[in-house]
Nucleic acid binder design. Structure first.
Lengths: 164, 164
DNA sequence: TATTGTTATACTCTATAACTATA
DNA sequence: TATAGTTATAGAGTATAACAATA
C-alpha cells in the first residue's frame, strides 16, 4: 500500500491513528522555518545548557558575560537592547553575577544615571573558559553539519533577523 | 526587537564603550548557531503570533490543531511527544480547544485509558484558515530569503535536530 | 520631558510529584 | 508493573506600571 498523505477523514484512518506506533504526518509544520528553527534551538540549547552547568552558568548569563568581555563598560540598557531582555529582568541577573565576583558596576563617567558593567579578573577567566566550552558544545550539537553547511546556516539565519 | 544602532556621534572618551550606542561587538555570539537560530525564532514567532491573534489562536494551539488536522484521532500522549509538551501542560490547552468547540475527545477504541482527539467541523474550518495565515506570515517574516534559500535553510535546520 | 536603573508584581511557560483507571 | 490522563504546584521566563535620580 502506498504511503498516504490524505487529508480525508475516515473511521478506518481514525482507528489507524488511534493505534500505537504509527507515522505522524508533520508535513505542514515542517514546511515552516519557525517550527524547524525552534526545534533546532531546543536541540542545541539543551546540549549547551548541560555543558555550561559545569561552570554554574546559564545561557543568558554567558551571553551577558561574553558581551562584556568584548565590549567592556557596556551599560545595562545596551545589554538589554542587544539581548532583548526587559530591563527589570536584567537586574537580578546582574546582581547575581556581581555577587559571584564575576562583574563590577561602576558609575558612568559622564552620565550619572547609568552604570558601566565590567568583568573582574575572575570574570574574564571564567568567560574565556565558558566561550571555549560553548563553542565546542555548539560543534557537537550541530555535528551532522559540515563546516560549510554550518556557515551557510548561520548566514541564512542572520539574513532572517538582521535589521531588527 | 528594537533597532540596535543609533546614528548619533559624540566626542571620544577614554572608554569608548562607556559612551552611548556605538557599534557593539557581537562576533562571538553571532558565530553560534544557537544564538542566531534563537534570534530568528524570536523574529518569526513575533510576526506569526500577531497574525494568529486575529483568530484568537496561540502558536502552540495552531500546532496542535494542525497536527490533528493531518493525523485525526491522535492521542494526547502522541501530541505531547511530537511537540515536546509535558502531559500536564497539554491538559488545559486541550480543554480550552474543546470548550471552544474546535476539537472533541472520544474514547480510544481499544485502550480504555486513552482519548482520541478529533477536530470538529468548526475546528477543521478554523485550522485550514489558520494554516493559510501562518504560511503567509512565515513568507513575510522570511522575506529577505529567496525561495531557494528558504528551502535550504529548512533542510539545514532539520539536519540539526532530526533524529531527536 | 525623557531616560537609566530599580522595585513590585503579574502573567505565561515549563517542570515535578502524585493520584486514577486502565493495560 | 507500567502507561494515559489528570491534578496540584513549583519554578523559570517574560511582561507592565510606577518610582527616584539624572539628563
Amino acid at each position: 500500500m502506498p504511503s498516504l498523505r490524505t487529508h480525508k477523514t475516515s473511521t478506518a484512518e481514525a482507528d489507524a491513528n488511534a493505534d500505537a506506533a504509527l507515522k505522524i504526518d508533520t508535513t505542514f509544520l515542517r514546511s515552516l522555518v519557525g517550527y524547524n528553527a525552534r526545534r533546532a534551538v531546543l536541540h542545541i540549547i539543551g546540549i549547551v545548557m548541560q555543558r555550561l552547568a559545569e561552570l554554574e552558568l546559564k545561557v543568558v548569563e554567558l551571553s551577558v558575560l561574553s558581551l562584556l568581555a568584548h565590549n567592556t563598560g557596556m551599560t545595562s540598557r545596551h545589554v538589554c537592547v542587544e539581548l532583548s531582555i526587559m530591563p527589570p529582568n536584567l537586574v537580578a541577573l546582574v546582581a547575581a553575577l556581581e555577587r559571584r565576583g564575576l562583574i563590577e558596576r561602576r558609575p558612568h563617567p559622564s552620565d550619572g544615571r547609568a552604570m558601566g558593567l565590567y568583568l573582574t579578573e575572575a570574570g574574564k577567566v571564567l568567560t574565556a573558559e565558558a566561550e571555549i566550552i560553548i563553542a565546542q558544545a555548539e560543534i557537537d550539537a550541530t555535528a551532522r553539519l559540515t563546516p560549510v553547511e554550518r556557515k551557510a546556516l548561520i548566514a541564512l539565519l542572520q539574513k532572517v533577523y538582521d535589521g531588527d
